[in-house]
């Protein structure tokens, strides 16, 4: 009985501390960060949106997407992103996810085989030339990047469809390729949306 009473007494003190923490850490703190972020870094805070001309914007109505979020591209004149498990059609920010299939999963093995055949046919290459990121779904389902190898694989097809010289598209890929940060962090990658915007601009809109 005395234990219960002690627990109750400590819980009431705990409730007062929790309410104070809610005001300070749960309301004041995130609002302060939001205020400063919106004031100083509005483009980042609003999701790194870009217009069709590649300009930064904070207005979703004027944007073609976020440079941080991958998006589906079905047009043959565009570079294709990685497979995505986010939502039924992929690249759905309301349903972010990887496939969560394990390394011995027969479903994953079948997916990889099918994707390899599909990419090889689309790009007109041998199946063994298709890189790993082209046949695997990313963790978020929103991966904005592809590997430099997958970008290089798509250059001839994109150049053909966009009516551009292969060398020019290859140069655009090089221009949009980022190496490892600080030389050692992460992996080399190419931002698909920015690359596609550059291709479209080069092709005359």
């Amino acid at each position: 009985m005395t234990e219960l009473f002690a627990l109750l007494r400590h819980s009431l003190a705990g409730l007062r501390v929790l309410l104070a923490a809610t005001v300070v850490c749960g309301i004041a703190y995130p609002l302060a960060v939001t205020g400063i972020a919106q004031g100083v870094l509005p483009w980042r805070a609003e999701g790194s949106l870009v217009t069709a001309a590649g300009a930064h914007t904070t207005d979703p109505g004027a944007a073609v997407g976020s440079v941080l979020l991958g998006q589906r591209s079905s047009d043959a004149g565009f570079f294709v992103p990685r497979p995505s498990a986010a939502g039924d059609d992929g690249y759905d920010p309301l349903s972010t996810s990887g496939s969560n299939l394990g390394p011995e999963s027969s479903e994953l093995v079948a997916d990889i085989r099918a994707r390899r055949a599909e990419v090889a046919e689309r790009e007109g290459v041998r199946p063994d030339q298709v890189p790993a990121d082209a046949v695997t779904a990313s963790a978020s389902g929103l991966d904005p990047d592809i590997s430099p190898a997958y970008a290089a694989l798509q250059v001839p097809r994109v150049a053909r469809a966009a009516g551009l010289p292969t060398a020019q598209v290859a140069a655009l890929v090089t221009e949009h390729t980022d190496g490892r940060s600080l030389g050692v962090l992460g992996s080399g990658h190419v931002n698909v949306l920015l690359l596609n915007l550059a291709v479209r601009e080069a092709a005359g809109g």
Partner: peptide
Amino acid sequence: APSLAGAAMEGKETR
């Protein structure tokens, strides 16, 4: 699956 894909990139981000 990783051997078939060529690397253990299922469920990983390119960057």
